[in-house]
Design a protein around this nucleic acid. Structure first.
Lengths: 230, 230
DNA sequence: ACAATAGTGTCTATCAGACAATATCCT
DNA sequence: AGGATATTGTCTGATAGACACTATTGT
């Protein structure tokens, strides 16, 4: 902290915005994308719910702050949220000048624990969360974050069969297809889907059982099925 | 500024990082991508050059700060830089905790004015600027910004014939192809290139002249040739 | 005529999308 | 046997890449 500029001032002598980190944590439940929301303490007529967020501390990275927000606000751990976009409207937060670095992640439902109770399914175009109180607007500019987050998830799953392991350890092609349909928000044709993903999956040699109809082959993700989102 | 939290503090009572804005301003010169760099005041052994940047002021948007950086550091105006990525390594700047929001833009050479003198051609994989002193490393983490900026430019020009008007008002297909080859860093086949862009260009009905060989048709950009980069 | 560049015909390979037939299980 | 699901064959249309041929200018 010894640095001083031409007029003898340090960086702290200039007014600076606060930096917030907000996280759109997505999952798939009941055949649809859903996002973890968080009920705000005070009474806010429109905008009772927001995405989990926090302020960036002076000595942590953005990823750490995002994980801390998830831990403290919705008790979820073990994620690795990715940067999405910086929201910088000077009036976006009435508590002062705050720029918000939006993050995303997409995880299997069973990793959410208690946060399952705070899931809002995402519907429509543009994609909007359906909140527990029936509204579809989040506080601040968080609707915009959800919109970009869904786009991100669709791009991610457009590139690889199951980069986030949403289909579990072993799965049939139909199960994987349901995951893709949930994320994409539209039905897919089974034969087209099959041919698109088959070369990037590992065959376990086992068959599903206990269900009606011809048993399906069980597949596993390739270890390399982890593309970056760049 | 009237807001106070549970312990009676405002946002300003908590330590906050500074927010820097750095801009990779790209253009095409001599058949290659080039980036505008800026010589730093003090004597820095490695890292004499950096991208133009500044600190975000309390009352401006990121885009405004990016434009201000270009105006004050390299005297370029009229750009509309786009967000690229947030660099948040706590040690990235030795003057204190600074997070850097990287921006990009890509403009025709003739809009750079004086800044033409500060152009560093970009070469190799990963793409690195070749600086006036022969080095290829920029200060801070600005090499990483250039790398992402080049990726961004390639994606942009992969989607439309000339979204940034680099080929001028009217151009032949060969001229446009040279622009694409400069951005992509590799040679293209003329017939493939032709078929890919032709449907998205307007024919002026005029022909080039004064050159050897068969005169080429002159084309114009479509007004809609401005895709967003999302 | 010749060099040089513009523009086109055509072949191949690949891929998504769709329809429909066949295969294999469970009850 | 019959219902249900899995798997494969095949056709269509679109597209990228490549090769080679034809067309039109200036010198």
């Amino acid at each position: 902290m010894a640095w001083r500029d031409g007029s003898g001032r340090t960086l702290e002598d200039y007014p600076r915005p606060s930096v917030a980190v907000d996280v759109a944590l997505l999952t798939v439940r009941d055949g649809a994308l859903a996002v973890v929301v968080h009920e705000r303490a005070a009474d806010h007529a429109a905008g009772r719910y927001s995405l989990p967020g926090t302020f960036l501390r002076i000595d942590e990275t953005l990823a750490e702050a995002a994980q801390r927000a998830l831990r403290s606000k919705v008790r979820v751990t073990g994620q690795r949220p990715e940067q999405l976009y910086v929201f910088d409207d000077p009036t976006r937060d009435d508590r002062g000048r705050v720029i918000g670095v939006a993050h995303v992640d997409l995880v299997p439902l069973d990793r959410l624990g208690d946060a399952t109770a705070l899931l809002a399914p995402v519907q429509g175009t543009p994609p909007r969360p359906v909140l527990p109180d029936g509204h579809t607007r989040l506080a601040f500019d968080h609707d915009g974050i959800v919109e970009r987050a869904v786009e991100w998830a669709r791009t991610l799953y457009g590139r690889a069969p199951d980069p986030r392991g949403l289909a579990g350890a072993e799965f049939t092609l139909l199960e994987l297809q349901r995951v893709h349909e949930a994320i994409g928000g539209r039905a897919l044709q089974k034969d087209t889907f099959r041919r698109r993903v088959l070369d990037d999956l590992d065959d376990t040699g086992q068959l599903s059982s206990g269900t009606v109809g011809k048993p399906a082959r069980l597949y596993r993700r390739r270890p390399t099925d982890q593309p970056d989102t760049r």
